[in-house]
Structures are given as structure tokens and as C-alpha cells.
Amino acid sequence: MAIAGDKNTLFASGQADTLRLIVYLTAAVALMVTDHHSHYLDRARAALGGLATPLYRVAQAPVEASRWLWAAASERVELRRENDALRSELLLARARLNAARIETEQNLRLRELLETGRRYRLSGRMVEVFQVDLDPSRQRVLLDGGTAAGVRVGQPVIDAWGLVGQVISTSGSTASIMLLTDPDHAVPVRNARTGQRAVAYGTGRDDRIVLPTLPMNSDLQVGDELLTSGLGGRFPAGFPVAVVREVGVDENGIFARVVAEPLARLRLSSELLLLEEVAVQESEERWPREGHGPPRLVPATAATGEQP
């Protein structure tokens, strides 16, 4: 190749360039196909993800600086007003939390009576979102925290208003979230008013998800709230997802065409809540597994060995 370059003739160089073009484009297409259809490159992405983190930090610096400037420059009066607003909001939230606690207790007692369902408690963890622009045509968000911080693939993510999405890939220090508006995303939902179940799919647009599998005669009204149904086991039940905005009939006249707007502020949140299920260690393990009757006395070593 060096020899061809030295000759420096007009046509030879053009041909060599075309050859290179073909080689590079083929390589790029091969990479894209591999990335799209298999998971070989995920490992490379996870390994190299650490290299990208400092760039993310630098790129989001202007946002942080502008926030700091705003706080420094805003008037005392304004800050006080904001403080008052936040305080009353906190009060309301506390009151609601107390009410919820009572209901949770009742719920637990009822579940114990029924002896159904998994025994778990939900716990959440705040994670920061990198304020950087990724491709706006893709419904992805980048988290400042990865496997080192205990983020796992498949964890549901919420904000204060509703479901945001789920973690789809992690590297050492970053994790990527697929928003529920991504065309590849589906979440099982339940109509809060009627209890009817459906699956909500993303559309690729920030402000709408669709429910394509509902029969035409479903009882759905504009303004109905959709909650996670908990089916499938990925998302815990009862989190708000979206509000129904349009109800129509698809062109075949068989299915309803339902469009809903996500409640979470998908692109505006700078902090999100990662949900994890913590198994409740209860007397369940000691319950006699085989047969019935009074619980037998088990040697201490065997009992600890049985517990995960």
C-alpha cells in the first residue's frame, strides 16, 4: 500500500481508496449486524465503558455549572418561596406515606392469611442520571453507577411520578436504561378503574405508549390510569405507568387503539429510583416442607445450610 501511495498516480489512488471504502464499510456492516443480533459485543461495551465515564462527567459539567449559577443568582425571596412550597409538599407526602404504611401493614396481614405471593419487600436506591445527550431517536438514558454500585440488568426504574423503564445493560461504572417508550419495550399494565389487564408497548416517542391488544369492546375511557399489573414478574405491581389519552378502533375493527401518555418525566429527571426486591427472611424456611404435622427439631447446622 505504501508503494501505491508513493506512485501517486491519479487513477491508482482512486481505485485503492474505493477498495478501502469497501473494506471499511463491510467491517462496519458486519459489526452492526453482530451487535444487533448477538451479544458478543456487549462484553466489549461493558469492558470499555469505563473509558467513556470521564467524558460523560466533563460533558455534563455545563449543566451542573448552570444549576449552581442559578442557585447562586436567584433571589432570597424566590428561594424562600421554593422552600415553603417544598415544605408543604413534604408534609403532604409524609401524610400520604403514613396512610400507605397502614395499608401496607393490612396488606401484609392479608397476604399472610392467604399464604400466597412471594415474600419480598421493595427497596429503592437513588441513582444519578448522566446529563448527556445520547441519540434522541433512541429511548435510552445513562446512569451514573454500574455493577460496582450493585446495579443489575433487569432492575425496574421509577421516578416520583411513575415507571421510567428498566436497566438493559451495565458496565463497571455506568448502566443504560431502556425507557418504557422504546419500541422494544413492553410492560404489563392494569386499568386502575376496571382492573382490566393489557400490555403497553413503547412507540419511540417520548409522550406516548400504545395498548394494541385490547378487544374493541373494552371498557376504557380517556383519563383512566394504568398501573403495573405485576404479571411477568419483572415489574412489581401497583406503580403508576400512564394515563389514557385516546381511545379509538383500529382499521380492522377488531382491536381498540389506545394511546396513553407516560406519567414519569422521562427526559427531565436527574435522579431516578432503582427498585430491588429484598426477600423477607421469615419463618417460612423452617416450615416443614414435606408432609404436615408439627415442625421437627432440626440441627442448627442443617438449618443454616438450608437458608440461602
Binding site: G14, D17, L21, Y24, L25, A27, A28, V29, A30, L31, M32, T34, D35, H36, L41, A44, R45, L48, G49, L51, A52, L55, L134, D135, R138, R140, L142, S176
Partner: peptide, 23 residues
Amino acid sequence: LLIGTWFGEHAFRLVVIAFIVRR
């Protein structure tokens, strides 16, 4: 790697640009 697109997407675009400019 940075933006999280498929590996090769930006590479494809930039190689096409570079080729046309060189031509």
C-alpha cells in the same frame, strides 16, 4: 461506544463522508 449506538453505525457514516471528500 460513547453514544450507545450499534458498533459500526457512526463508523459507517464517517467512512462514507471521508471517502466522498477525498474523492
